[in-house]
Computed example of a mutant assay.
Amino acid sequence: MAANTAQHMGNLPSGMGICTTLPDLFYIPELVFGVLTWALVASTLVQPSMLLGWVMFVSVFCFVMTLVWIIIFVSGAHRNSSGWAALDLAYHGIAAFFYLSSSVLLAYVTISFKALAGSSEGLRLYRIDISAVVFSFVATLLYFIHTIFSAIRWKSF
């Protein structure tokens, strides 16, 4: 795979080529962990609700934009210009920052509500919150790694 990555670093892949090159291999895991975060946060009680709104905004926004980004790359609409490589870098950098902020806020709220885990329902919600935090941090890591590889690809143009 390293040879394949080096071969495609100077241009942006299109079609199913996005399934074989870095950083594009991260698209599907980003979608999966993003939707898991989205579903888990939606199924629990996060107080204050403003934090729930931010976490939901980040996970839905990044899911939709990553899906749009995949469609652009698969369809070949990016035409191998360095402008698309810079946009890819910018989007994934912003997504990593957004996910980091929402992950930290979600972790803080989860830790602060540990005392409510005394009842069986409270323990169930606490475990769901912990799972959401873990998946959110994994999504953050995936977007961050994607940002690094996008920066390398952008620099090679």
Score class of each variant (00 low, 15 high):
7 Q>L: 05
133 V>G: 04
62 C>H: 05
150 S>L: 04
31 L>D: 08
3 A>D: 08
137 F>S: 02
69 W>T: 06
37 T>Y: 00
37 T>M: 09
58 V>R: 04
25 L>M: 03
99 Y>R: 06
103 S>A: 15
144 F>H: 04
42 A>R: 07
4 N>D: 11
150 S>C: 14
139 A>W: 01
3 A>N: 12
66 T>S: 12
74 V>G: 03
93 G>K: 00
13 P>D: 06
4 N>S: 07
19 C>I: 05
129 D>W: 01
101 S>H: 07
136 S>T: 10
90 A>V: 14
60 V>E: 00
149 F>K: 00
95 A>S: 12
118 G>Y: 15
138 V>I: 15
113 F>T: 10
79 R>Q: 15
145 I>M: 03
133 V>W: 03
87 L>S: 09
56 M>H: 05
50 M>N: 12
142 L>I: 13
123 L>Q: 13
123 L>W: 10
80 N>I: 01
70 I>Q: 00
121 E>R: 06
111 I>M: 12
76 G>L: 10
37 T>P: 02
132 A>I: 09
145 I>R: 03
145 I>Y: 02
156 S>E: 07
63 F>W: 04
35 V>Y: 08
57 F>Y: 11
93 G>F: 07
134 V>I: 15
42 A>Q: 10
22 L>E: 10
88 D>Y: 04
73 F>E: 14
27 Y>H: 11
29 P>W: 04
94 I>A: 15
1 M>W: 05
109 V>H: 01
41 V>N: 02
149 F>Y: 13
146 H>D: 15
116 L>H: 07
148 I>H: 06
154 W>T: 04
85 A>V: 08
24 D>W: 03
116 L>G: 02
56 M>I: 03
76 G>C: 09
122 G>L: 13
5 T>N: 09
43 S>T: 10
22 L>T: 11
85 A>H: 00
8 H>A: 13
38 W>P: 01
40 L>W: 06
40 L>I: 04
129 D>R: 15
95 A>G: 01
125 L>R: 13
30 E>P: 02
41 V>Q: 01
65 M>T: 08
4 N>K: 10
66 T>F: 00
20 T>A: 03
7 Q>G: 00
154 W>F: 15
156 S>Y: 10
120 S>M: 07
156 S>R: 12
88 D>G: 14
